[in-house]
Amino acid sequence: MTDVETLAALAREIDTTCRLTGTFVLRSGRTADEYFDKYRFEADPRLLDRVAAQLALLVPSRARPLRHRPGRGRSAGARRSRRGAARAPHSD
């Protein structure tokens, strides 16, 4: 199978897995007769592995992984929101 055929087969499988038809009420309140549910391929380990393998081919060979450095990597806002997530909202 050529690269083009492999990608086309993967695209068809993603479409078959994730494209839902019916009547869907969107967050905006509008309705749609089709919906793409990305969580459906994320929940299928075999399909997710195939998607990840194709995405990995797009990473330049010179790319290096990011290293986690304790105390860094999250913004102060992210730390605050994580710590404050379990607290009840404060009202004045």
Rank of each mutant, 00 (worst) to 15 (best):
L58S: 05
T6W: 03
E42R: 07
L26Q: 14
F41E: 05
A86N: 08
D49W: 02
R82H: 04
G73H: 12
H90T: 12
F41M: 05
T23Y: 06
F24A: 04
D37Q: 09
L10N: 04
A85E: 08
E13P: 02
A78G: 04
D33R: 15
R40W: 05
T31D: 04
A88Y: 04
V59K: 15
S75M: 06
L66C: 03
S28E: 05
S61F: 07
V51Q: 07
E34F: 11
D49L: 08
L66K: 13
E13R: 09
L26M: 15
P45M: 05
R67C: 04
P45T: 04
A8I: 09
L10H: 05
R62G: 04
E42W: 02
R64Y: 03
T21R: 11
T16S: 11
Q54V: 11
E5M: 10
G71M: 06
T6S: 12
S75K: 10
E42D: 09
R83M: 06
R50L: 06
R62A: 15
R12C: 08
Y39D: 10
A56E: 15
I14F: 07
P60A: 10
E5C: 01
R80M: 07
A78S: 06
A9I: 03
H90L: 14
L48I: 00
L47H: 02
T21W: 01
A11G: 01
R83C: 00
S81Q: 07
R30I: 00
R87C: 00
P60T: 07
R27S: 14
A88M: 09
V51M: 07
P70Y: 09
D44S: 05
A63C: 12
R62E: 15
K38M: 07
D15I: 01
R83P: 00
A85K: 10
T31H: 12
H90C: 00
V59W: 09
D37E: 13
T16G: 02
G71T: 05
R64S: 13
A8P: 00
G73L: 11
S81R: 11
E5H: 11
R72W: 11
Y39H: 13
L55F: 13
A78L: 06
P89E: 12
